Simulated assay, not measured.
Amino acid sequence: MQLKIANFFIARTERLKMVGWDTALKRLDHADFFSRACGVLVTVYNREMKCLHAPVSFDHHYMAFRNDYAADRELIGQRYYSDRK
């Protein structure tokens, strides 16, 4: 079953500031934010539920742009995994 749902969440301002939003990320920003919010914000996460942008079959350039996660993966790898051996 597919549903259309608007993105939203409610948070207390002071707690939200403790997590912050990474404006450098463009495609994986939500996943990064909510994984860093774990333990700071009270959240519910269901791995089986995925929210995706609706594909625009007639606009291949846009879909290539939307599905390009390489830069975000590289940035996240540098930030969180660069010191691992």
Rank of each mutant, 00 (worst) to 15 (best):
R79P: 00
Y45L: 11
E48K: 10
Y81D: 13
A31V: 07
L3H: 09
R79K: 15
I5E: 04
M18L: 14
W21V: 09
L41T: 03
F34D: 01
R73A: 01
H61K: 12
A31G: 00
V42P: 02
K26A: 01
Y80V: 01
K26T: 11
L3N: 08
D72P: 02
A54C: 11
W21Q: 12
A6Q: 13
I10P: 00
R84Y: 08
S35A: 13
F34E: 12
R27S: 02
H53M: 12
H61R: 14
F33N: 05
A37V: 05
Y69M: 09
Q78A: 11
V40M: 09
A37D: 04
Y81S: 11
L52E: 07
A24T: 15
Y62Q: 14
R84P: 00
L28N: 06
H60R: 11
C51P: 03
A31D: 12
D32N: 14
S82T: 04
R79A: 09
P55C: 07
G39A: 03
K4R: 14
R84K: 10
E14P: 00
F9N: 02
N67W: 05
D59E: 06
E48L: 04
G77A: 03
D22R: 10
Y45C: 08
E14R: 08
R47W: 06
Y45G: 04
L25F: 03
R15Y: 10
M49P: 00
L3S: 11
N7S: 15
D29R: 08
A31Y: 02
F8T: 01
A37R: 09
F9Y: 11
R15P: 00
F58D: 11
R84S: 04
L28A: 06
I76T: 00
L75N: 01
K26I: 08
